[in-house]
Amino acid sequence: MYLISDLIGRENTKKLMKEFGGSSIYIPREDRVSRNKRIIKEYNGYNSRALAKKYDLCHKTIQKIVKEG
């Protein structure tokens, strides 16, 4: 297991600590970002339930992804 400073460097770690120190932050996996891009591309305004089934997500999650995309 790596320390965050080993991955992003000491100065960037300090920036993260200054901005988010004491709180939890969520960093999505790259595959989730790619999946969301595919969902947005496939969305046609009427197929959120089909996309939810295809990607094993709930209908509201699809709507959220499209809205935030």
Score class of each variant (00 low, 15 high):
49 R>T: 12
56 D>Y: 03
59 H>G: 00
20 F>K: 13
52 A>L: 00
7 L>F: 10
8 I>P: 05
22 G>I: 01
44 N>G: 09
7 L>C: 12
5 S>H: 13
15 K>H: 07
44 N>D: 15
69 G>W: 07
39 I>T: 02
23 S>Y: 11
15 K>Y: 07
10 R>T: 13
12 N>P: 01
23 S>R: 15
4 I>W: 13
54 K>S: 04
40 I>G: 04
10 R>P: 02
49 R>W: 07
44 N>V: 06
53 K>L: 10
33 V>N: 00
17 M>Y: 10
62 I>S: 01
58 C>Y: 12
63 Q>I: 07
6 D>I: 00
40 I>A: 14
31 D>T: 11
8 I>R: 10
14 K>F: 11
22 G>F: 01
24 S>V: 07
26 Y>G: 00
54 K>Y: 01
19 E>D: 12
50 A>G: 01
63 Q>N: 14
9 G>M: 06
68 E>R: 14
36 N>V: 03
34 S>K: 14
13 T>R: 08
17 M>T: 09
56 D>T: 07
58 C>N: 15
68 E>I: 10
65 I>W: 06
61 T>S: 14
30 E>R: 10
66 V>S: 02
40 I>C: 15
47 N>E: 04
39 I>N: 02
67 K>N: 13
65 I>K: 04
46 Y>R: 11
56 D>V: 06
29 R>N: 11
68 E>C: 10
60 K>I: 08
25 I>W: 01
58 C>E: 12
57 L>S: 02
46 Y>E: 13
42 E>N: 11
25 I>F: 00
31 D>M: 09
23 S>W: 03
38 R>W: 04
65 I>H: 07
13 T>G: 08
50 A>E: 15
63 Q>F: 00
43 Y>G: 03
58 C>F: 08
15 K>L: 13
16 L>Y: 15
43 Y>T: 02
58 C>K: 13
38 R>M: 12
38 R>K: 14
7 L>H: 02
16 L>R: 08
8 I>S: 05
51 L>F: 03
62 I>Y: 03
44 N>F: 04
64 K>I: 08
33 V>M: 11
47 N>G: 04
31 D>L: 09
18 K>I: 05
34 S>R: 12
27 I>D: 02
56 D>I: 05
7 L>N: 03
18 K>F: 04
33 V>W: 06
34 S>Y: 06
26 Y>N: 09
8 I>H: 07
38 R>I: 09
1 M>F: 09
49 R>D: 08
51 L>P: 03
69 G>S: 09
